[in-house]
Design a protein around this nucleic acid. Structure first.
Lengths: 210, 210
DNA sequence: GTCTATACAGAGATAGAC
DNA sequence: GTCTATCTCTGTATAGAC
């Protein structure tokens, strides 16, 4: 979880913070060194070069909570929770934006997404596909149990995932300008609530009808 | 609509293309000049400096179709179209991703969003707020006309807007790696369909109940 | 308006003393 | 493992001839 120690750790976290704020290319080795409080050349005792720092951050991304919206649980373990599961997932997205460490990683990811094909592969496979597939499985099981109405589970997964991602992006953007995020922050929970109400099978209504 | 002529136009479009692909900072004046087919110093006859090119692109953004998902129509003119309106809007998002010019602008916008506070202001006011407010107004009128169920119109606007944005981002990302976009492209229409079905007031059902 | 030449600043990276 | 010094390259921008 937590990376290295001493100077290397300081270099790592300073670099991440600067990359997230101004981008990889715009951040200089001298700038990193200055914030760490060492000479620029001293960085090379810990990292081979600038790109090595970048690669280290990308590696760290993979073990971060950023991608673990299911908290390592399998679909069949959790789908029965129904609405509560959706609320939990929405809440994890919200928590990420308020955790300094994962928030930096997310901003870094968005910042460099179109510049770095390694990052795009990572984003696609580990962040998007993995989560959407799990969500898909969850919705499929809910349908079989007649908890929700039958439709395309993959569509449901995308429809549930995309607003959460969007709200996360909005908050990250608002924070970049020190604007208030309170209005946007309420949208996570509202989304889960709204979404569940629209897909659930309403048993009371069913009873009334027949 | 179309910008300048001759060399200046070539510089502009080459720069936009390179900025969108590799970012503003990573693109050099020499690289732009080389692709245009002139000497690097000749650029300065058309633009004051590198930032001047950037600012010109940002200006062009404002007059682009990227932000006009309502095609300059007012909410009260169009809300009665109901489902068709939602489908139209979803289709405009889709068209944007397949129009070379607006797609470049969108990719440029995403690329530089976190680097440039001018762009963030533009994105927020012209792209997000404007459209969400209009959508909000549309949903509010639909509620008054009892076309859709009553809830928070602003929430509805965000819920309708965010998947469209997300799918647009996905396609732009897939294109960056020359991957197939056909699966993602179908999501625009499916979203409009899905969303409408979930919010509309089903008159047939209402009649059955009372 | 484009060219060649060049100034100048800032970047990444290495060498070698301590 | 950190420092000072320095190398080399690359980038933006300007000057002045054609």
């Amino acid at each position: 979880m937590s990376e290295f120690k001493g100077t290397k750790q300081k270099i790592y976290s300073t670099a991440l913070s600067l990359f997230a704020e101004q981008g990889y290319k715009s951040t200089t080795m001298r700038q990193i060194a200055k914030e760490v409080g060492i000479q620029q050349s001293a960085i090379y005792n810990h990292f081979k070069n600038k790109e090595d720092i970048l690669d280290t951050i990308i590696q760290q991304l993979e073990s971060s909570h950023l991608i673990n919206i299911f908290e390592n649980k399998e679909p069949q373990e959790v789908y029965k929770k129904g609405k509560l599961l959706l609320k939990n997932i929405a809440n994890i997205f919200k928590l990420i934006t308020y955790d300094t460490k994962t928030d930096l990683l997310f901003r870094f990811l968005m910042q460099e997404l179109f510049n770095n094909s390694k990052l795009r592969v990572f984003y696609n496979e580990e962040f998007y596909q993995k989560n959407v597939k799990k969500l898909s499985a969850v919705f499929f099981m809910m349908m079989q149990d007649e908890m929700i109405e039958a439709t395309d589970p993959l569509l449901l997964a995308n429809e549930f995932f995309s607003p959460l991602f969007f709200y996360q992006l909005q908050i990250t953007r608002l924070k970049a300008d020190n604007q208030s995020t309170s209005a946007a922050a309420t949208l996570f929970e509202k989304h889960a609530e709204f979404f569940w109400n629209k897909i659930k099978i309403d048993n009371s209504k069913k009873d009334t009808l027949f």
